[in-house]
């Protein structure tokens, strides 16, 4: 079968082209590890000064492994970022001043101080509920699931798009058009061929992220692989589609800042809750938005596949639309 011929050829080419293969399979692991090294830090040595605070509270804070230090001029120390927060007594309540120039610090301090004070019954009643009862202690735990999807998307887009483009630049596409192969067979061959590598990639990336980097996985491993794979397919069909609009590899690279990077902004890495509605609305047109949403549902919230049916449908829909558009553009070339 002609589709089979293309699939075999793509597998042969990829296996011979060790660098592209490595880019597809191991570059996501490298970047995930780097992000993990940078983001997976617990804010452990927080320094807090106290002014007129009862000893009992200081003891409680110390119990919570908060570093309460004695310092001469706490207020100026706070300004100089020598300490991270001041706790002082103001009338009947406690006033906490936090150096919020370090966003991760302030979150951590609020959490820790709250935890410390909750255990003290005589201080005002504070109630904290954790909806999912998770122990997400670092930024990486929150963004890990999104990054798994994003890097899979990025590298499949790049490798798939460029090899489809090379077909054009080395003249073989024209040569294919002079054989009795149908356009859909060419595109289908590409999707199956690279789809196989995308399956391997999804499997390796998810396995590595969960078991080596400790990204939380509350739901099913296989559901995560499924979502990552669907994202990769959307990236593949989008990459091959856009490559027909690029004349060379350099022009293909130009699609990265225009098409791939913006997807990161709508993937949940950045909080869009306060953004205008139309900004959120843009996300609806991006595969990454649905992929990231589904990954968070499964990995963080531990939901089953039923909870992400809409996202799965959207990802399949994107792939189908890109596939059909690609057939259209190929038919345009094959005059």
């Amino acid at each position: 079968m002609k589709v089979g011929a293309i699939v075999t050829r793509i597998i042969r080419q990829m296996v011979r082209d060790k660098r592209s293969l490595a880019l597809l399979l191991f570059a996501p692991l490298l970047i995930l590890t780097l992000t993990w090294l940078v983001l997976d830090q617990e804010s452990s040595d927080l320094k807090i000064a106290t002014i007129d605070v009862p000893d009992s509270i200081i003891t409680t804070l110390n119990d919570q492994q908060i570093n309460v230090i004695d310092i001469d001029k706490p207020k100026s120390a706070l300004k100089n970022s020598e300490i991270d927060a001041i706790i002082e007594t103001a009338g009947n309540s406690l006033r906490i001043t936090i150096d919020d120039s370090e966003p991760t610090n302030s979150q951590a301090i609020m959490m820790k101080i709250q935890q410390a004070l909750v255990s003290k019954a005589n201080v005002q009643q504070v109630e904290i509920n954790h909806l999912y009862g998770l122990e997400l202690s670092t930024t990486f735990d929150y963004v890990g699931p999104v990054l798994i999807g994003y890097f899979a998307f990025f590298f499949v887009f790049l490798v798939g798009g460029i090899s489809f483009l090379r077909e054009k630049s080395q003249g073989t596409m024209e040569r294919l058009f002079a054989t009795p192969i149908k356009s859909w067979e060419i595109v289908a061959g590409y999707i199956i061929g690279f789809g196989l590598f995308a399956i391997i990639q999804s499997f390796i990336v998810v396995l590595f992220a969960v078991y080596a980097l400790g990204v939380p996985l509350e739901g099913s491993f296989w559901n995560v692989v499924l979502i990552t794979l669907l994202l990769a397919l959307a990236a593949l069909t989008l990459g091959t589609l856009l490559s027909t609009f690029a004349k060379n590899e350099f022009q293909m690279m130009q699609f990265i800042p225009v098409v791939v990077v913006p997807q990161a902004f709508f993937s949940g890495l950045f909080n869009l809750e306060n953004a205008p509605l139309w900004v959120e609305w843009i996300g609806n047109f991006m595969p990454m938005y649905y992929g990231a949403e589904a990954l968070k549902e499964i990995m963080i919230k531990g939901n089953s596949i039923d909870a992400v049916v809409l996202e799965i449908a959207a990802l399949i829909g994107f792939s189908l639309v890109f596939f059909v558009l690609n057939l259209g553009t190929l038919a345009g070339y094959r005059k």
């Binding site: 050829r9 042969r12 080419q13 011979r16 080395q170 073989t172 024209e174 040569r175 002079a178």
Partner: peptide
């Protein structure tokens, strides 16, 4: 196209094969 053998001006070959 089944009856036509075509050799393009550019060598349309897959260099990795």
């Amino acid at each position: 196209l089944q009856d036509i053998g075509y050799m393009a001006q550019a060598d349309a070959l897959y260099s990795e094969l």
